[in-house]
Design a protein around this nucleic acid. Structure first.
Lengths: 130, 130
DNA sequence: CAGGATCCTCTATGATACTG
DNA sequence: CAGTATCATAGAGGATCCTG
């Protein structure tokens, strides 16, 4: 993990450098909705805009669109337009998106396994502070 | 991951419900610095506040303190004060924090493996849009 | 050294209205 | 249906000064 190179030739990754790609990873999945969209698309095959909208509780049109655009730009999802009379648009995970889905599943598993501990710690902390 | 049950009997977690704990997981690691702090603490043993501050490029005092407090509250790190003449404070991952570190390593690995693909997709997308 | 307290600035996110 | 455009706002994040 060298932060020494500016060219990036021999350097691997330095999460602590402001310019490291791994920081952009956090941008990609760290935002409020991207992870949720990826997991939603992982549940089944292609999903329509409206399906996603219904499935992901609380997302606004703007945020859903913005998130999908970002994921498309990053090569994580594909956007397929079918020019029928009411237009139909399907979103689907790319292979790259599927690989990220695996990570999201790890996150999900961690949450399922340890979230109660986090809650307990939080309660204890708050009680001690009060 | 059933989103189908309204009764909640058989349902485990529904990431798509606004109240699901998994959303709070995203809060815990999705913010700009928490993940970085965890990875930093995973590099070696306990670290002092100033060490972390130097290691994590770009963090402000406020954000570092705030992040550490949050992680402590969630039971992911411990805070140990040594009342020497200039006070000394060490932060260290708890077992729970270590388990999350594992996930962070998955994320890091994914980034190292696929970030170039993301960059390529991004470049292509931007070129096509121009 | 390790923060606490303030003030200030964006950015992320949302609500609403409109369109091909 | 699947968005785009616009306006509005809370809160994340940062700069700075101060203290035990």
């Amino acid at each position: 993990m060298d932060a020494t190179t500016a060219d990036g030739s021999a350097a691997r990754f330095d999460v602590f450098a402001a310019s490291c790609p791994s920081r952009r990873l956090l941008d990609a999945i760290g935002n409020k909705w991207a992870g949720l969209v990826i997991v939603a698309l992982g549940l089944k095959g292609p999903m329509r805009y409206s399906e996603l909208s219904l499935r992901i509780e609380g997302v606004s049109q703007k945020m859903l669109t913005q998130t999908l655009r970002g994921l498309e730009r990053d090569g994580l999802v594909t956007r397929t337009v079918t020019p029928s009379v009411p237009v139909r648009v399907d979103y689907e995970l790319t292979p790259l998106g599927l690989s990220l889905l695996e990570i999201m599943r790890h996150l999900k598993d961690w949450a399922e396994t340890h979230m109660s501990e986090v809650d307990a710690a939080r309660t204890a902390y708050d009680r001690a502070s009060a």
